[in-house]
């Protein structure tokens, strides 16, 4: 293989309280993935076995923050990534998981783990290995500084591609009509 002409850009991605649909949309660039791999190197992503984020140029974060572990990972990404991007509705405003924000959590637990149908010896999970749950699902910008927001549930592959290629070319990314969606 020929050595890449330009130095590779380091890219990390993670999913917090998301559904992985935004990651799927990233993979929906299909064959363009191979072109992307000529330009970027993956750091921590669900596709690699790197468990902690190292210094990166770009961090893509899917999902809002719903528990203490999400907050930790988000702060790690903010510390390590020069440019941090909130990818998709959940990261931008909490998305569907934020529908729990108006509910009483105690009710939630009881219903799912104690009084739910077909339960034998219901109990509520409480092991210290389980991360603390936050009172609400928070959008990323309420916890860390975010450089760019890409709306959509999920943003289309074309939108993600256009955004990344402009960013990699050193331009200020602009998503015009047809690439911005609020579904």
């Amino acid at each position: 293989m020929n050595a890449p002409a330009r130095p590779r850009v380091r890219l990390a991605t993670t999913s917090l309280a998301g559904c992985f649909g935004c990651h799927m949309s990233l993979l929906d660039i299909d064959e363009r993935l191979f072109a992307l791999l000529d330009r970027v190197e993956f750091d921590r992503t669900p596709l690699t076995d790197i468990k902690a984020c190292g210094p990166c140029d770009i961090g893509l974060v899917e999902g809002g923050a719903s528990n203490a572990e999400n907050v930790e990972v988000l702060r790690e990404f903010r510390r390590q990534c020069r440019i941090l991007i909130a990818l998709g509705a959940c990261a931008v405003n909490g998305g569907l998981p934020a529908q729990r924000n108006h509910l009483d959590l105690e009710d939630c637990l009881t219903q799912v783990y104690l009084t739910g149908p077909g339960m034998q010896n219901g109990r509520i999970p409480d092991d210290p290995e389980l991360p603390l749950v936050l009172d609400k699902v928070y959008p990323l910008h309420e916890i860390v500084r975010v450089d760019y927001f890409i709306p959509g549930c999920p943003p289309s592959a074309d939108a993600i591609w256009a955004f990344l290629t402009q960013l990699l070319a050193g331009q200020e990314p602009v998503l015009g009509h047809g690439l911005i969606a609020y579904d």
Binding site: C19, A68, V71, R75, R78, R79, L105, E106, C108, L109, Q111, V112, Y113, I124, P125, D126, L130, L132, V133, L134, D135, E142, I143, V144, R145
Partner: peptide
């Protein structure tokens, strides 16, 4: 999708400034 609902655990509320 295997993730259902909340555990019976203390809830933590943190007030965070812009830099974390």
């Amino acid at each position: 999708c295997a993730t259902h609902a909340l555990g019976r655990m203390p809830l933590v509320l943190e007030l965070v400034d812009g830099s974390g």
